[in-house]
Amino acid sequence: MTDLTPLVFSAFGLVLLASAVGVIVARNPVHAVLFLVLAFFTGAGLWMMLEAEFLAITLVLVYVGAVMVLFLFVVMMLNVDLDRLREGFWKYFPVGAVVALIMVVEMVLVVSSRQFSTLGLDGLPAPASYSNTRELGLQLYTNYVYPFELAAVILLVAIVAAIALTLRKRKDSRYVDPSAQVRVKAADRIRVVSMPAEKDPS
């Protein structure tokens, strides 16, 4: 039986590249977002092949599941005027091309430099019982518990700061108070008036 790994890798890689190109050439922003979702999915597939299942699952859950859905909402809500966005394309093209060229050169330098040549190449295929997620969890909750807790505190500060800076009590807006609604009694709503029965005049 032949090894299918190169074939699967090429398939994922091609789809990833094609969808990445799709993100930037798609005319419709909703299509672009959907292409980005596809790119994340195939990227997650590649990570899965590297046995980094935790990263792969997180990418799908967090980025595809939460961030991209939010993105899609924003893109749909905002009516982006495409023609105005495309107006300056040729004007900015030379600058963009120079930046892109510099980035390509840098990447080639980094990848081919000796500093990075030894990184991550010593890994033999791990035994079948090896769980990437378990190892990460063990590190995170034992050796790195202190930074982990600190990161949690920073998130707490972010929540406090965001609420402190944005919460405005609007006194003029009409709203329903559920607590008052629940506490209401029949007597508050209907007044039972007892009055003598009246005879039909006729």
Binding site: Y146, P147, L150, A151, V153, I154, V157, A158, V160, A161, A164, L165
Partner: peptide, 18 residues
């Protein structure tokens, strides 16, 4: 540990900014 140093710094900066 440099990671801890950085996290402490971020905690300070974020609170100060708010």
């Amino acid at each position: 540990h440099f990671l801890v140093l950085y996290l402490g710094l971020e905690l300070l900066s974020l609170s100060t900014c708010a």
